[in-house]
Design a protein around this nucleic acid. Structure first.
Lengths: 175, 175
DNA sequence: AGTGATGGTTCGTTGAACGAACTGACTGGG
DNA sequence: CCCAGTCAGTTCGTTCAACGAACCATCACT
């Protein structure tokens, strides 16, 4: 989405949502945050996004309370971007969107699966665990697994490589 | 989102999803389709969208199999745009996004509520009916109700007026 | 023949995204 | 101390999509 501004006049929560998370790149940044990406340079390498756009989106997300900056070293000063609780609740949007696309537009096997960490079962389309009967599996209890599908030309950036190498629990730092 | 093109290189279903429904206006058009809006002119009046952009998005949505055109009169030839099953499944994305925004960014009372038509109960954040214990309430079983909040300056276009006047079942034609 | 409704298309302007280059703070090595 | 390298941005000229006003085509009604 390219916008940022105003669906104003639309007195509608959905329109306000899209002002926040509907801009181009924003939801992919949030997805990466779920994967455990936390640093400017890692977002940059994984997303192939113009640097200025990334900087802009990160500050917007921080202002909206979806990400928070936190200092992880002082010299030189370096911050990382972490999902807040508010941001983590966006899992309920991201997973259904991912799932909808897998169901309707996938060709072949999925490149990733999302599994309930407690039992290893792949989540159903609504984000529940069919084995445990767990109603709302929280992102912290989910692992991303690679495959079974393989991309034609796998990306070589550190984030993509890490996600292929081993299952990774959402929200945990990737590095 | 403004894009339309390529998050290519992102071998990711979420990125492909955003190519389809992540463009500016697209999800608002789909939302209106759930409300029962079906005609070019009604989308136009309700959304305040440039005519060319609306025409472009409608054809894109039809090509993606999210909407389908169907002729409702022959002279002059007039088509309406209806959600397909694939499109209707986007409810699982739209409702959580609406709900997330209501929870985190609403000021005062909601302007609309979504209720289980069978029992009149407002849906919970996950889209379930707390009264019936119904797990996945399908959009065809949901009614949009106005209020309790009132917009400062209510819109006067036919779609907004109709949605304020009486509860309306999703997917049913508004006019 | 003239007017209005409907559903577009055309086109010049504006604004956002792109991407390459640059900056500034710091580290670690020689 | 100097130099190369890393990291996290900012700057800026170009490109491309959104905007919005005007125009157009088809048909009905009078």
């Amino acid at each position: 989405m390219a916008l940022g501004k105003n669906y104003e006049g639309q007195n509608c929560s959905l329109a306000r949502a899209l002002e926040l998370v509907g801009e181009r790149w924003t939801l992919l940044i949030v997805r990466d945050a779920f994967y455990g990406v936390r640093r400017y340079g890692d977002f940059l390498a994984h997303l192939d996004i113009p640097r200025a756009v990334l900087a802009d989106r990160l500050t917007t997300l921080v202002e909206a309370g979806i990400l928070q900056r936190s200092r992880y070293q002082d010299s030189p000063p370096r911050d990382e971007y972490l999902l807040t609780d508010r941001g983590a609740e966006l899992w309920s949007v991201i997973y259904p969107l991912w799932s909808w696309t897998e169901r309707h537009f996938s060709t072949g096997e999925p490149l990733r699966t999302f599994r309930h960490a407690a039992c290893g079962t792949a989540l159903d389309p609504a984000g529940r665990c069919p084995t445990c009967g767990q109603m709302d599996v929280r992102p912290g209890d989910i692992e991303v697994h690679a495959g079974p599908g393989e991309p034609a030309q796998p990306r070589q950036d550190p984030v993509s490589v890490a996600l292929r190498q081993r299952p990774h629990r959402l929200l945990q730092p990737l590095f």
